[in-house]
Amino acid sequence: MSSSGYLVHRRLLFHLCKSPCVLKRRVGQQRLLSTSGRCRTIMPAWVIDKYGNNDVLRFTRNASFPVIHYPNEVIIKVVAAGLNPIDVSMRGGYGSSTLSMKRDPLNIKQSGSEFPLILGRDVSGVVMECGLDVKYFRERDEVWAAIPPWKQGSLAEFVVLSANEISHKPKTLSHIEAAAIPYVAATAWSALVNTGGLSKDKCANKRILILGGSGGVGTFAIQMVKAWGGHVTVTCSQNAERFLKGLGADHTVDYTAGPVEEPLSQLEKFDLILDNIGGDTERWALGLLKPWSGAKYVTLVTPFMQNTDLLGIADGMMQTAATVATKALKHLVKGVHYRWGFFSPSGPTLDEIREMVDAGKIRAVVEETFSFSQVPQAFEKMEKGHARGKTVVQISQGGT
């Protein structure tokens, strides 16, 4: 390149760098270019810079703006974010070893590279930008999603997710209502369908026991099983019985009146048990299943994360595999199946859930709503437990 050509080239680059930020907008199947007055590089968010109690939560207006790194990703403007018990656990460091491996499989980054970390596993909002390979969504679409715990969460103005993790929001729900469903729906679906083997065609007249029915997963699971024609028994406190029967529960057992295994043992045996409680329930719960009929006990309280946090990834996974294999074999000889259930993010699953919501078969259960400035109070509410539904944070005003 000649000296004069080099100067022209540098001058052109200089003017391009000073021009307004270029944003991509999808219109039909074409991608046009439009200019914005400024290029966003930061956004408001609640973050943590270390693990700990509620004191580690910090509000900042300088959180890094999410960036599309892969052609199948979308940027979502968050309208509402739902909180779950896992957010409280992650704030304290639960699963940090496993999630760090998922974020950085080759261990290239230094320890602590996940900070500043944004919590929040549920999101309902509006698509702001789509990657080049995204075909099913367009800018301004209203969507909802359950965010994997290894990704930055929804307690921020924007979040970036893969297109196969999101779904169009139900038309019958507001953003606040929609933010109460995705994470618990994905968890319950994974436990009952993927692990438990239930489906809308294989649930009629099945007897299901849900241990701990008044929380987010329990309230959703009750509605899903009833929508498919199953019979649902739940354990709960006495003051939650009317609430859960209003969601469709056929029978309730009050755990505050004494050990629940005694009244449960007097009932007809069950085809599937969903355990949201853990603890010593494994000691007696599997005896409530119908033997030699394919009945399953699925627990959502597993030692997988604890093992990897305590023993490291390799030893923790070996310990976990040995534990689940031992328990599965122990109960298999008694004619019942022992399984662990895990959260699994899935846009197609939320598509199925959306149809059930819009058909009036499932409704959102929001216990309390907080403003964006009240995130610490929302976490305090979550830590108290005994929830009847979900805690939701409104991040911004709804609409496009």
Rank of each mutant, 00 (worst) to 15 (best):
60 T>L: 06
179 A>C: 05
352 E>C: 09
110 Q>T: 12
171 K>Y: 10
308 T>F: 04
286 L>P: 05
323 T>V: 10
159 V>A: 04
250 D>C: 05
19 S>E: 12
71 P>W: 13
336 V>D: 02
363 R>Q: 09
76 I>H: 06
32 L>E: 15
197 G>Y: 01
186 A>V: 00
69 H>Q: 04
266 Q>N: 12
394 Q>Y: 05
72 N>E: 10
306 Q>R: 07
361 K>W: 07
248 G>K: 12
124 S>F: 04
373 S>I: 09
238 Q>D: 09
380 E>I: 07
146 A>E: 07
383 E>V: 14
63 A>V: 04
238 Q>Y: 14
295 A>M: 02
323 T>Y: 13
231 H>R: 15
359 A>K: 13
200 K>W: 04
111 S>M: 01
141 D>M: 09
300 L>Q: 05
207 R>F: 02
346 S>W: 09
102 K>I: 09
19 S>T: 12
363 R>K: 13
258 G>Q: 13
210 I>C: 02
152 Q>K: 12
115 F>T: 02
274 L>R: 07
369 T>H: 03
291 P>Y: 08
120 G>V: 13
8 V>Y: 14
379 F>A: 01
372 F>Q: 08
167 S>W: 10
5 G>D: 13
40 R>I: 02
153 G>F: 14
14 F>I: 00
24 K>A: 12
179 A>N: 02
348 P>T: 03
317 M>T: 15
230 G>Y: 03
45 A>F: 06
237 S>G: 13
177 E>H: 11
342 F>N: 05
369 T>N: 07
249 A>Q: 14
275 D>W: 05
180 A>N: 04
154 S>A: 15
150 W>T: 06
141 D>C: 01
40 R>T: 06
80 A>Y: 00
151 K>D: 10
216 G>P: 10
270 F>T: 03
268 E>R: 11
175 H>V: 00
277 I>L: 14
36 S>N: 01
79 V>F: 03
182 P>F: 12
197 G>I: 03
41 T>H: 09
169 K>I: 00
364 A>H: 00
302 T>P: 10
374 Q>P: 03
220 F>W: 08
290 K>R: 15
120 G>P: 05
337 H>L: 04
322 A>D: 14
93 G>W: 06
45 A>D: 11
374 Q>G: 06
364 A>Q: 03
340 W>G: 00
139 E>A: 12
178 A>S: 15
247 L>N: 07
96 S>T: 13
395 I>Q: 02
68 I>C: 01
13 L>P: 01
134 V>R: 08
50 K>C: 09
278 G>F: 03
41 T>G: 00
261 E>H: 15
360 G>C: 09
191 A>N: 03
104 D>V: 12
222 I>M: 05
77 K>I: 01
152 Q>E: 15
137 F>H: 05
11 R>Q: 03
179 A>R: 05
386 H>W: 10
284 W>C: 10
228 W>N: 01
132 L>D: 10
382 M>Y: 00
315 D>H: 06
57 L>K: 09
78 V>H: 03
347 G>L: 08
322 A>K: 15
214 S>V: 12
19 S>H: 08
301 V>T: 03
164 N>E: 13
258 G>C: 09
18 K>D: 07
146 A>L: 11
5 G>R: 15
49 D>I: 01
40 R>Q: 15
345 P>A: 08
